[in-house]
Computed example of a mutant assay.
Amino acid sequence: MNGAERVPLRTADVARESGYSVQQVRDLERLGVIPPAARSANGYRSYTPVHVRALRAYRGLARAVGPVVARQMLAELRTQPLTTAAAAISDAHVRLARERDEALRAQEALRAIRTEAKGGDFAHEGDAMTITELAGALGVRPSALRFWEQEGLVVPDRVTSLRARRYGLSAIGAARIVAALRGSGYGIPAVRDIMGSLHRLDGVEDTERILRRRLEQIAARTVALLRAGADLAAVVTSTEDGPTG
């Protein structure tokens, strides 16, 4: 760490540079988002520019993955080896890319449902997935698919006396749309209403708008994560330069 990085900063300085209020800086320090500040003999907090960069990193990370996950990640990134911390940041990018892929697949499924409603071909023999395969593809637990089934959102084909579930293309498409809607924050009653409206043209159009907004939100979150990149790099490398307090 160079001399400039060791210039002591007051809480008000950190607040001004990071865009947070003084109270928010103290709260985020208490939550472990930034390392504890050094204390002077009279009890005043003393920060460094590394604290500012950690707060900026948190802002972008919170927009990308949510504040709860961001708080946990920042606390861990500061204490993990560089290789582990870098992998965790890469994983955040991968999760966003996967969410985007699933939203695109939900759009494809919606187009297929519209084609099917017009009398087109949708399902094909042999195109089916087990509950474990579908859950893995969607990034959800099998219990989520069972719950959606109970709620009448996704109805699989049942085979064998053990009630093993297999999902044809229609059910897979419905599951992708449900997953995208749930990822957009829609509750089960709202999802049920939307799924029930897909036999109508206006229902399909409304769902198309929701999925477009979903993709726009994922794009905004991805940009926020990219903007946080340099500050995240400063956080994960700060432990190599010595203590920040």
Rank of each mutant, 00 (worst) to 15 (best):
I113F: 08
I113Y: 06
I113C: 07
R114M: 15
R114Q: 15
T115L: 13
T115Y: 08
E116W: 11
A117L: 15
K118C: 15
G119L: 14
G120F: 07
D121Y: 02
D121G: 03
D121W: 04
D121L: 03
F122C: 06
F122W: 06
F122H: 03
A123L: 07
A123V: 15
H124Q: 03
H124D: 14
H124F: 12
M129Y: 00
T132E: 10
T132R: 02
E133P: 01
E133C: 07
E133D: 10
E133Y: 10
L134P: 00
L134C: 07
A135T: 00
A135N: 02
G136N: 15
L138V: 05
G139R: 12
V140S: 02
R141W: 03
R141G: 01
R141D: 03
P142M: 01
P142S: 04
P142E: 06
P142R: 02
L145F: 08
L145T: 01
R146E: 03
R146P: 04
R146G: 03
F147R: 13
F147W: 06
W148Q: 03
W148Y: 04
E149N: 04
Q150I: 04
Q150H: 07
E151G: 13
E151C: 15
G152W: 08
G152D: 05
L153S: 10
V154E: 07
V155N: 10
P156S: 10
P156H: 09
D157W: 11
R158S: 01
R158L: 02
S161N: 14
S161C: 12
R163A: 12
A164Y: 14
R165M: 08
R165C: 10
R165P: 09
Y167I: 02
G168R: 14
G168F: 04
G168C: 10
G168H: 05
S170H: 10
S170V: 14
A171S: 07
A171Y: 11
A171F: 11
I172N: 09
I172P: 05
G173P: 07
G173Y: 04
